[in-house]
C-alpha cells in the first residue's frame, strides 16, 4: 500500500476519500458520494446504560426475541403451556361455578415444575454458554462493562425471564378468579403469596441454572446438566421422604426437602406463605418452622453462592 496520507494526526479529515476500498468514489461522474469517516461526538452513556442494555438484550433473548425463528420455538412453547394450563383452570372454575380455584396460587409452580425445569435448562445455556463458547466475553470486558455488570445483568435477566414464566399464569388465575367473582380478599392474598414464592423460585433457579451452564461452553452438556441438577435431587428427596413416611418419621420429611431446589421453595411457602406442602407422602406433612426457616436461608445462600461463583467464573474468561 502506498503511504498516500502521511501520518496526519488531524482527526477531522472528513473530506478525504481513501484511495482504496470504497468502490464508486473513483468514477468521477458517479452520484455515489463517499461522505468519509464521521466522528461520533454524541453521548457515551457508560456502565449503567451498558448493564441495562445487556439486561434487556438477555431477557429478550431468553424468549427468543431478536434471535432466529428457530430459537423462539422452545421458550414460546413452554410459556404457552404455562399459560394454557392456567386458562383451562380458570375456564373450569368459571364454567362450573366453583367457589374457589381448583388449586392454590402457590401450588401452580409445584405442579408445573417440569415445564420450569425445561425452560431454565434450555435458556440458561443460551444466556451464558454462547458468550463463553464463541469467546465473545473479552469483547464485553474490553468495554466499560465490568464483570459485576455482566454477571448481574445476566443473572437479573434470567431471574426476570423465570419470573415472567411463573407469574404470568398466576396473573391469569387471579384475573379469572375475579371474573368468576370469587372472594376478592382471599384471592388477592393468595395471589400475593404466589408472587412472592415465584420471585424466590426465579432467583434460586436462575442462579443454579446459570452457574451450571457457565461451567461448560458446550450447550448440549449445559442443558443436560441443568436438567439433572433439578430432577436428580428431586427424585432422591422424594424417595427419602417416602421412606421417612413409611418409618413414621414425619419430622425428617421437611428437613429432607432442603436437598432439592423445588423442595426448598415448597418448604418456604408451606411455612411462610400458607401453602399446602407438596411432599412425596400420601398426605401433606407440614415442615417444622425450623425446617422452613432453614430452607429460606439455604435458598438465599445458594442464590448468593451461585452469583459469587459466576463472578469467579468470568475472572478466568476475561481475556
Amino acid at each position: 500500500m502506498p503511504s498516500d496520507a502521511p501520518a496526519t494526526g488531524s482527526p477531522g479529515s472528513t473530506g478525504s476519500t481513501g484511495s482504496t476500498g470504497d468502490s464508486g468514489t473513483t468514477a468521477a461522474t458517479d452520484v455515489i458520494h463517499d461522505i468519509g469517516y464521521r466522528h461520533y461526538d454524541g453521548p457515551r452513556l457508560g456502565r449503567g446504560y451498558a448493564r441495562r442494555s445487556l439486561f434487556t438484550q438477555s431477557l429478550r433473548a431468553a424468549y427468543g426475541l431478536g434471535r432466529s425463528a428457530k430459537s423462539k420455538v422452545p421458550p414460546a412453547l413452554l410459556f404457552g403451556i404455562m399459560c394454557l394450563v392456567a386458562l383451562i383452570l380458570v375456564a373450569v372454575a368459571i364454567g362450573t361455578g366453583m367457589d374457589e380455584l381448583p388449586l392454590e396460587y402457590t401450588d401452580y409452580a409445584i405442579y408445573l415444575q417440569p415445564v420450569i425445569f425445561l425452560f431454565i435448562a434450555a435458556q440458561a445455556p443460551v444466556s451464558v454458554s454462547r458468550d463463553l463458547r464463541f469467546r465473545t466475553v473479552p469483547l464485553y470486558f474490553s468495554r466499560p462493562v465490568e464483570r459485576l455488570d455482566y454477571v448481574s445483568a445476566k443473572y437479573a435477566a434470567m431471574a426476570s425471564a423465570l419470573f415472567v414464566l411463573t407469574a404470568t399464569p398466576l396473573l391469569i388465575l387471579y384475573v379469572g378468579a375475579l371474573l368468576a367473582k370469587l372472594d376478592f380478599t382471599d384471592q388477592t392474598k393468595g395471589f400475593a403469596q404466589g408472587l412472592v414464592s415465584a420471585a424466590l423460585l426465579s432467583l434460586l433457579f436462575a442462579g443454579i441454572g446459570l452457574a451450571i451452564a457457565a461451567l461448560t461452553p458446550r450447550r448440549g452438556f449445559g442443558v443436560a446438566a441443568v436438567i439433572a441438577a433439578f430432577t436428580v435431587p428431586f427424585g432422591a428427596v422424594s424417595a427419602l421422604q417416602g421412606i421417612a413416611w413409611e418409618q413414621d418419621n414425619l419430622g425428617a420429611i421437611g428437613w429432607f426437602a432442603l436437598f432439592s431446589p423445588i423442595g426448598l421453595i415448597d418448604n418456604v411457602q408451606s411455612t411462610f406463605l400458607g401453602a399446602t406442602p407438596a411432599t412425596a407422602s400420601p398426605e401433606p406433612v407440614d415442615p417444622s418452622t425450623a425446617a422452613g426457616t432453614a430452607a429460606l436461608l439455604v435458598a438465599l445462600a445458594l442464590a448468593a453462592g451461585c452469583f459469587l461463583f459466576l463472578l469467579r467464573r468470568y475472572r478466568k474468561a476475561g481475556l
Binding site: 457515551r44 452513556l45 446504560y49 438484550q57 468495554r143 462493562v145
Partner: peptide, 13 residues
C-alpha cells in the same frame, strides 16, 4: 449494534 451499546452508545447512534 449490540457491541456499540455495550460501549455506551444510545440505540439510534
Amino acid at each position: 449494534v449490540h457491541m456499540a451499546r455495550m460501549s455506551g452508545l444510545p440505540a439510534t447512534a
